[in-house]
Every structure is written in C-alpha cells, then in structure tokens.
Amino acid sequence: METLLVFLLVQLSVSEGRPYDPAPGIWHDKSEARNLDCSRMSQQRAHELHPGEIPAPLARLANQESEALVCTRRIMRNGERPERDELILDSLRESVGEIAEVASALGPGKLTWHVDAFYPQPEVAAKISVAARTELAEQGRRVSDKVPVLAAGDIVVLGRMAPKDAYPLACKRYFAQRALGENDAFLGIMLIDERETQLHAGLCLNGEWRWLR
C-alpha cells in the first residue's frame, strides 16, 4: 500500500503536479481545456498583461528569454449557444471592423449610413447590425438607427429569390420606393450558406448593389 502511495505521489508531484497547467490531465479534463484561448508570449509581456497571475521574470535570468503560456477562459463555454451563432459572435468585432472599413472606403462623402443584418436568428442579427452601426459611427460616419423597409409585397417576392438576385433587387426597390435617397448608403450584412461561419456584406448606393466580401 505504501509503495503504491509513493508511486502515486511521485507521479503527481513530478509529471502532472502542475495544477495551473491548462493541458488536459489529472487536474483538467479535455472539455475544460477546449474552453480556453491560449497564446504564447514573453514572460515580461505576460506579466504586464496579467500582473496578478504571472510573476515578473527573475532579474538573474534577464538574459534568457522566458516564455509564458497565457490562457483565458471563454465567457460562453462550448455548447452553451448554437455553434454557428457562437462562431459569428466570437469574431464579431473583427468581421464587422473589416466590413465597415471596406464599406467606408467605397462610400465616401457625406452619406447617411443605414445598416441591417440578415441572419436566421433575429437576436444575433440585431447584434450584428448594432456592432456595424457602432463601428461606422466610431469611424466618424453619419449613421442612422433607422432601417429602410420595403412594402410587404416586395418582401414576399424577395423571400422566394436566391440571395444573388434578392439583394440587388432589394437595393433597387429601396431606391425606387424612396426608402433610400441619393445621400443614403445601405450596408447589408448577411449569411449566404447555412454551412459557413463567416459574414458577407454588400453595399447599396443609388440603387446599385455591390458585394463587398
């Protein structure tokens, strides 16, 4: 019995007696490790970012570059939200930032920007459009919270069309119905295929639709 105890103590202390190591093992299971986002960086940088968790490199080891593995736990664990929603929301800042940058470059001048998102889940669609409006407004664009709407008949017809035809036609209808004017730009952000995990965008200017990404 004692021999076995010694054996286990040796294993715990030497090999996996590192409870703060996030790798799966005795202390952490695999699913827990998958809820972490980790990156390697110098210990000095890691200490600056997380002074309460990572000690400063020792002065006597100043010549040696020591590294730290910094892991942060994701707020929403795997499985808490539908997978595609989680992926879209996870990269929302990045994707919306890219879209707003491209759109701003293509729609210069004193335009009033309107934004809407087309995504199967309304609450996620609202998050996407809010993020894009905020991003454009922070870039100094004139942004409206108002979303242009089409007549019910138009929506019924457009709903039956494939995206490649629906968005350009919707853009024409917005302009024709004066929901958008010459000084208005409409940025549409959407999902095209149910199997993808990225957002696409198109810009409607003067009744002309242009795919951005």
């Binding site: 087309f118 490649k164 629906a166 549409g188």
Partner: peptide, 21 residues
C-alpha cells in the same frame, strides 16, 4: 466575390439559405 457567376468548369449548385431583405 464572383457575384455568384458560375465557375468555368463546375456545375455545382451551392445550397443557399439565410434571410433576405
């Protein structure tokens, strides 16, 4: 980015879903 123009050789038809305006 090709505005859904068909690829030169491919005859595939991607499944398209999602809300439209």
């Amino acid at each position: 980015l090709r505005s859904f123009e068909p690829r030169p050789q491919s005859g595939s038809n991607p499944r398209q879903t999602g809300a439209v305006p």
